[in-house]
Each structure stands twice: as structure tokens, then as C-alpha cells.
Nucleic acid binder design. Sequence first.
DNA 1: TCGAATCGTGGTAGCGTTAACGCAACAAGA
DNA 2: TCTTGTTGCGTTAACGCTACCACGATTCGA
Lengths: 323, 323
Amino acid sequence: MTVSRVINDSPRVSVETRRRVQASVAKLGYVPNRLARGLTQRKTSAFGVIVPDVANPFFTLIVRGVEQVAWRAGYHVILCDTEGDIERERGYLEDMVSFQVEGVLIAPVGDTSRPNLRLLTRNNVPFVLIDRSIEGFESDLVLGDSVGGARKLVEHLIELGHRRIAMITEGLEVSTARDRLRGYLDALAAAGIPRDDELIAKSSAIEPEVARDSTLRLLDLSEPPTAIFAVNNIAVVGVVEAARERNLEIPGELALVCFDDIEHVSRIYPFLTVMAQPAETYGTIATQLLLDRLAGRVSRRRRTVVLPADFIIRLSSGAHEAE
Amino acid sequence: MTVSRVINDSPRVSVETRRRVQASVAKLGYVPNRLARGLTQRKTSAFGVIVPDVANPFFTLIVRGVEQVAWRAGYHVILCDTEGDIERERGYLEDMVSFQVEGVLIAPVGDTSRPNLRLLTRNNVPFVLIDRSIEGFESDLVLGDSVGGARKLVEHLIELGHRRIAMITEGLEVSTARDRLRGYLDALAAAGIPRDDELIAKSSAIEPEVARDSTLRLLDLSEPPTAIFAVNNIAVVGVVEAARERNLEIPGELALVCFDDIEHVSRIYPFLTVMAQPAETYGTIATQLLLDRLAGRVSRRRRTVVLPADFIIRLSSGAHEAE
DNA sequence: TCGAATCGTGGTAGCGTTAACGCAACAAGA
DNA sequence: TCTTGTTGCGTTAACGCTACCACGATTCGA
């Protein structure tokens, strides 16, 4: 019909006809069917966004960033929460292909996501990895400087005189955990502090409770740490809880630094010394990369964007007391 | 094709044929096209979720609750963030109709959302309102006991001896703000404290900065409040910041209570006396209502679910000092 | 005045899937 | 043996839209 032309406002329609069609559309409350449109044009105007945990403020902000840019560009966002489950991630990726989304933004579960991502490459769905790279896997990528950030945090602790510095981390199949461990080790090495594996508490699925248990175990060591580096905003919650349980004063008896700031926490209680990552920007930039690729404005080469983190010294590291 | 039968595993297929089809599917990496399927069956297996701000932990948890239940039921979630903008909400609702989603879960911008929601009723898209009702509008509804919760919070302050109690709220076109104001006024009235409009700080779009400014103005009154009731987790951030700016000790010089707990904040710093709402449950129950309706397991009558809030007394109200 | 370009509109086909039906082959009951 | 039913699979049409082509009407340059 000519209706289609009016809807998609193509130029080849007389003013009069357009007016009449628009009147009818308004009167009948007609709404075009995007499924049908998608079927013919093979365009859905939708992106998939896949994260391991929407409730984690870091990922929430990423989602918001994506949503904003996508919306401005006329795209919708299908949200998927994998809960860190690789099977669920696979299911979602299949669904994204099935839905014919035009692109996917994903913070993968970990290195084991690689076969899942093959689904996208096989079906020519462009995608951008956010926050987490995958060992030896080429793709557009937006992430933070985990190595450098971790190194700086740990150096900060070392400068404050700490030598027994523990790290609480999630499983090393997650690139950020790997990189932050590397930064931690680099800082120790540079200061001539020998690595002590007793002080590195790994646990695959990081949750506050898990981090709490790890912290308690660390505190029970014959030579317990005087400072802790928590791998992210989730882990740090457990550390704080463990310290409270043991009546340990932070930073007096235990210094604490971590990755990721949480806006609400820091505004209500500016306490944690953190490496704050611009999470929302991760989302906006990643979406921009995706849009560029869709527009073909970009070479076949994969691009990596590394965003600097913001080192914010607050109370938990004990810097102010040391002054 | 017979392929369709295999995919939807209908019974009328021989074992041998099924095996062969499945083999081909695996080999070719065939993924069915949901658009086409949706077109014929007029089923998309998708819900729309519309909230005013994903980054607000309260709504984030709702989204997560929705996502979880939806996923279990085989549905996907299209996420929309209106940013409190009524026009944007309208656009999203049109899109939801256009996408043929099977239902919508929405925390509306406010009472002005009513014409927007007509889009759904006109197109027979079932929906559930979450957290916010709309004046004189019938629909399935999941919300908290704002009146009772607010009343309890304010009564708590009164019991602690406060008589100059201010309220910081968002615009009254949002039902929760209206209800909480009512609870506040009820509590005052019950205690025989006269209403003082000077102490009620309304601002349409609530943001920490706005709440901060309101608080500062309240503190500058000739007879400033000794206690503040913040309408939600966003407003309370601004109050805390204002108090810090003025070097006012909470609760010593200014008592503080609010609606909504923020998990991360309360775990790291269990300070705020709050009326904690089970946000995630809002999402799960709302989705359940929607699923019931889709399954036709439910009368035409609209249902309202009111979830009780959890009154958590911590430091900010000064109860412990008063003991 | 005539051919050619342009404009506005309508017709047809096809996107990938499934609902509905059709039909052969075979089994079972009379 | 004939009817009836069941099983397994193919065919057709339709979902609502747009790409593409066709065609009459108008405009324009020569």
C-alpha cells in the first residue's frame, strides 16, 4: 500500500494523500507490526545486552549507558541476565540470533563463553565485548585498565607501609580477575615483596558471603594480612562485613581498597578507597562501536578501547591517618 | 516442512526423520527465525519492562525479578528506561505494541501516564503496574504500603521526641509520593502536631542534588526541622550530603528516616533507618500476575497486591541513643 | 508537438514460519 | 475383503510488511 510509504515517510507521496492516510492511522489507532517489517527488511532495530548480573551497580550502569545511546539511534534493548551461568548465556545468545537482533553487547561470563560467541560470528551478528575480554579472542572490546588500576591500588597500600597484602578475587577465567591479579603481583614484585599464595583468595562465583568467608579465613592465618585488595564492588562488601564481625577497625586494623565505586554508597558514606570505573561510559562507547560497525564506518579490524579508571583515596586505605 | 515439526517437537514425526533433521540442523547451524514465527503465531515470547530509571537500585531489582520469572516461563524482556519522561514513555509503549510483546510490566512516570497506557488497552496488550498506581485507573497492580510505611516512619520519629519533622518528596503526580505524604500527615495528625507546609519540600524530578538543595533550604528556616523523612533512596542521598555540608551530625543534630533500602549501602554501612521494600519480589509477583492473565487463569477482575515493607531501625533515626 | 523524465499510486511477490488440510501407506477391526 | 483409523509427511495459504516493478498522469526541454 501507499500506507507503507507514509509510515516510513518516503518522499514520493502527495501532501493530500499523506494527510488522509495519517488521519486514518490516527482514527483507527493503527500501529505497524515490527515483526513483519523485520521479516522483510531483515532489520529489527534491536540490540541484545547480556550481562552476568543486572543488580550489580557496575553492570546496571553499563546497561543504562547502552540503553541511552541505543535509544537515540532508534534501537531497542533486549536485556539478558545470565547470572554468571554459561548455559544460560548460550541460551540467550541463541535467542538473540533467533530474534534477529542487529547486534549484541555482552559482558561475557568468562573465557568459557568463547563457544557461545561462535553463535554470533557464525550468524554474522556483530557484537562488542564489554568489561571482559576473552583469552585469544578477537573482537571489538571496551574495558578498563585492570592491570594498571590494580597495581596502583596495591602500590598505594605498599606506600602506606603494608607488606602483608591479601587479594580477594573471583575465578581467573574472568579476564578482569586475571588482570587485577597481575597488577597485584606486579606491584608486589616491584616493591620486592615475595608472593604468598596464602594471601590470594580465589573463589569462582564471587558473592559477598563468599568474600566474607574468604576474609575470615585470611584473618585466621598465623600471619594475617594488614591490608586487603578486593577485586570488585561485590567482594568488598564481604570484606567489610567480615571486619565488622571481628570488630576490626578499618583502616586502623585492616586497610582496604577495591575496584569499582558504587555511587550511592560513596555519596552516603565516602569511605572506600577505590579505583572507580566509568561504567556508564563503557556502555555508551560500546554501543557507539556497535553502531559504527553497523554503519560500515569502520574497517574490518577489531578495535579495543581501554578506559582509564579514577583512583579515589578515601578513608578505608588509611592514607589520611598516615599523613 | 517437516522441519518445523521437529523444531517444535510435535509427535507426528518418525524417529528416523527426526534424527536426520536434527543432524542437519546441527550441521548447518540453523536457527529458527522468531520474527517469522511470531508473525504466524502472533506470539513473540517477549515482555516489555518499562521503568523510570534502571540505575535506581529499587527499579534495578524489580527488573531483575521480572527477568528471572520471565526467563523461567520462556519469555524475554525488552528493557525500556523512560528517565521519567512522559514522551519517551509514550514512544516506548508504542514500540511495545509494535513489537507485539505479549505483556508489559511498567512502573509509570506518574498519573500523566494514563493516556499512554490507553495504547495498551486499545491494543489488548495485558499489563501490570508496578510500584505506582494511577489515580482512578483500573489494572493489575503490585505496590507497597506507602501510607502505612510512611506513617510508621514518622511515628517512629515522633516517639523519639521530634515535633519539627520535614518531608522531602517528589511530585505528587506519582502515587507513592502522594501516599507517603498522606502517611506523614496522618502520623502528624494522630500526634496532634499541626501541619506546616514550610516543612514539606516537593520537587517534581527528584535527584540527589535537588534533595540536597531542599534540605539546605529547610535547615535555613528560622525554626528548622530536627528530623527529616525522605521519600525514597534517591532523596535520602541528598539529605545526607546536605547534612555533611553543614557539619550536622546524624542523628544527633538531625534525625533521618526514608523509604527503600539499598542493599550495598546497608551492608557496607548499616546506618539508615528505612522502610525496606522487597523490590525484587515486586518484579516476580507482577510477572506472575501477568503470566496468570496470559494463561487465562484469572477472572477479568483486576487484582491489586500490596506487599508489606520491612521497618529497619538503624542509627540515622537516633533510636539507639534514645535508649 | 512530441519524447523523456518525473511523480504519485497500485499490483505482485516474497521475507520464514506455522495452521490447516490432503494424501498415501499401513494397521486393525468387521 | 472392505472399511475405518492412524501415522508420517508434503502442500498451500497466510501472518503484515516492503522491494520492486508497472503504469498513468503530469511536467519539461527541444
